[in-house]
Deep mutational scan, measured.
Amino acid sequence: GSMEQGFLPKGWEVRHAPNGRPFFIDHNTKTTTWEDPRLKIPA
C-alpha cells in the first residue's frame, strides 16, 4: 500500500507482479529489481 511506498528511496516505486510478488522500479536509472532497495546498505 501507500505506507510502504513512503519508505522507499527517492525515485523508487513498488509494484506487484501478476503473481503478487512485489518488485521495485528505480525511475532514476529506469530499471527494475526484485531486491528491496531498503535492504541494501549504502556504501
Rank of each mutant, 00 (worst) to 15 (best):
E35G: 06
W12L: 00
T31S: 08
T33S: 07
R21F: 07
P22H: 15
K10M: 12
I41L: 14
W34G: 00
R21K: 10
G20P: 03
R38M: 05
P9L: 07
T29W: 03
P22R: 10
H16P: 04
P9S: 05
K30L: 08
T32P: 02
W12F: 04
K10Q: 13
G11C: 07
L8K: 01
A17M: 13
E4T: 13
G6K: 10
P18R: 09
T33G: 01
E13D: 02
E4V: 14
G1V: 12
I25H: 05
I41R: 11
K10V: 10
N28T: 07
G6Y: 11
T32N: 05
T33E: 03
F23K: 04
W34V: 01
P22W: 07
E13S: 05
I25F: 10
F24T: 01
K10H: 10
W34K: 01
G6A: 10
P9V: 05
P22D: 07
D26H: 06
T32E: 07
D36S: 03
P42W: 09
F24S: 00
G6R: 10
L39E: 09
K10E: 11
G6P: 09
F24Y: 11
D26M: 01
T33W: 08
S2H: 13
E4H: 14
G1E: 12
P37C: 07
A43R: 09
P18E: 09
E35K: 11
P42L: 10
F23C: 15
I41F: 13
L39I: 12
T32Q: 10
W12S: 02
L39A: 11
E35W: 14
A17N: 07
G6I: 09
E35R: 13
F24V: 00
E35Q: 13
I41V: 14
R15S: 06
F23L: 08
I41G: 12
R38V: 03
E35V: 12
T31V: 08
G20A: 00
N19G: 08
V14M: 15
K30A: 11
G20N: 05
E13H: 01
K40I: 13
R15I: 07
P42D: 10
G20C: 09
N28V: 08
E13F: 05
F23P: 00
P22M: 10
P18F: 08
K30V: 04
G20R: 04
E13I: 04
S2V: 12
G20Y: 01
P18S: 10
K40A: 15
F24D: 04
K10Y: 11
N28L: 08
F23E: 05
D26W: 04
